[in-house]
Simulated scan of single mutants.
Amino acid sequence: MSEKIIPRWEWRTFANEFGEAEERIKKHERGNLKFSEEKYILSKGSNENTKFRDDLMDIKSLQEVNQDSLEQWYPTMKDTFPMTKEKIAVLFTDYFKAPVPQFKKEAYTFEAFLEELIKPCDELEVVDVKKERHIYVINMAVVEIAEAQFNGIPMRTICVEHADPDNVMKIVRELGLEGFENINYITAMKKAVGLE
């Protein structure tokens, strides 16, 4: 029996410094410290969150945006490579919103997928992402301060996530973050690499 996924509402921002808000977060006990390296595939015609990490193609789709501009993302695909050309065609049509390439193979390893199908496509761009995530729990919500790199471009981000959107906004206000722009990973990444 698979574990039921409870969608969380997300508030995220990017800046070089977060001032007093960061100090307020750090007064709480830090939980996990997570390092990761992943490849995101950005599309000019789509804002799907498409990444490859730990040998897995992982896609999250934006389900809803509420009155406070909080976003609710939900996993819509998890798959491994080699991947058949039929599944790859679905990636291009449903997620990348890009023309389906001419296939020369029945199935592709991830390396062949990138080199032969993704990189030649003018609509798509591969972004190498490194993350160092400092995880805190505040009022039952996950609060993250992360140092990230998008193709080597340094970025800093704070995120607040919880199933209850009112709790997310309460924490955002208590931390003094409401003056920062709420911006998701894909939008920030597109801006950083010039794919707006």
Score class of each variant (00 low, 15 high):
residue 34 K to R: 07
residue 35 F to A: 07
residue 35 F to E: 09
residue 36 S to Q: 07
residue 37 E to W: 03
residue 37 E to L: 10
residue 42 L to E: 03
residue 44 K to Q: 11
residue 45 G to R: 09
residue 45 G to P: 00
residue 47 N to W: 01
residue 49 N to V: 03
residue 49 N to D: 13
residue 49 N to E: 05
residue 50 T to Q: 03
residue 50 T to E: 08
residue 51 K to M: 11
residue 52 F to T: 08
residue 52 F to I: 15
residue 52 F to E: 10
residue 53 R to P: 01
residue 55 D to Q: 12
residue 55 D to E: 14
residue 56 L to Q: 11
residue 57 M to E: 06
residue 58 D to I: 05
residue 59 I to A: 10
residue 59 I to V: 14
residue 61 S to L: 09
residue 62 L to E: 13
residue 63 Q to L: 12
residue 64 E to L: 09
residue 67 Q to M: 07
residue 68 D to K: 14
residue 69 S to P: 01
residue 69 S to I: 05
residue 70 L to F: 10
residue 71 E to W: 05
residue 71 E to A: 07
residue 71 E to R: 09
residue 71 E to N: 06
residue 73 W to L: 11
residue 76 T to Y: 08
residue 76 T to N: 08
residue 76 T to S: 15
residue 78 K to T: 14
residue 78 K to L: 13
residue 80 T to Y: 10
residue 82 P to Y: 04
residue 83 M to D: 02
residue 83 M to T: 04
residue 83 M to W: 06
residue 84 T to N: 08
residue 84 T to F: 00
residue 85 K to Q: 15
residue 86 E to P: 02
residue 90 V to S: 01
residue 91 L to D: 02
residue 91 L to G: 00
residue 99 P to W: 05
residue 100 V to A: 11
residue 101 P to L: 04
residue 101 P to W: 03
residue 102 Q to A: 13
residue 103 F to D: 04
residue 105 K to Q: 15
residue 105 K to D: 14
residue 106 E to T: 09
residue 110 F to H: 15
residue 110 F to A: 12
residue 112 A to H: 11
residue 112 A to M: 10
residue 113 F to T: 02
residue 114 L to P: 01
residue 116 E to I: 00
residue 117 L to F: 11
residue 118 I to T: 06
residue 123 E to W: 02
residue 124 L to I: 08
residue 124 L to K: 04
residue 124 L to A: 07
residue 125 E to P: 02
residue 125 E to K: 15
residue 125 E to Y: 07
residue 125 E to Q: 14
residue 127 V to D: 06
residue 129 V to H: 11
residue 132 E to H: 10
residue 133 R to V: 00
residue 133 R to P: 01
residue 134 H to C: 13
residue 134 H to P: 04
residue 136 Y to A: 13
residue 143 V to T: 05
residue 144 E to C: 09
residue 144 E to N: 04
residue 147 E to N: 06
residue 147 E to Q: 01
residue 149 Q to N: 07
residue 150 F to S: 10
residue 151 N to Q: 06
residue 151 N to H: 03
residue 152 G to D: 09
residue 152 G to L: 05
residue 152 G to M: 07
residue 154 P to A: 04
residue 155 M to I: 13
residue 155 M to D: 00
residue 155 M to C: 04
residue 156 R to P: 01
residue 156 R to C: 08
residue 156 R to Y: 07
residue 158 I to M: 09
residue 158 I to V: 09
residue 158 I to D: 02
residue 161 E to A: 12
residue 162 H to G: 11
residue 163 A to T: 11
residue 165 P to W: 06
residue 166 D to I: 08
residue 170 K to V: 04
residue 171 I to W: 04
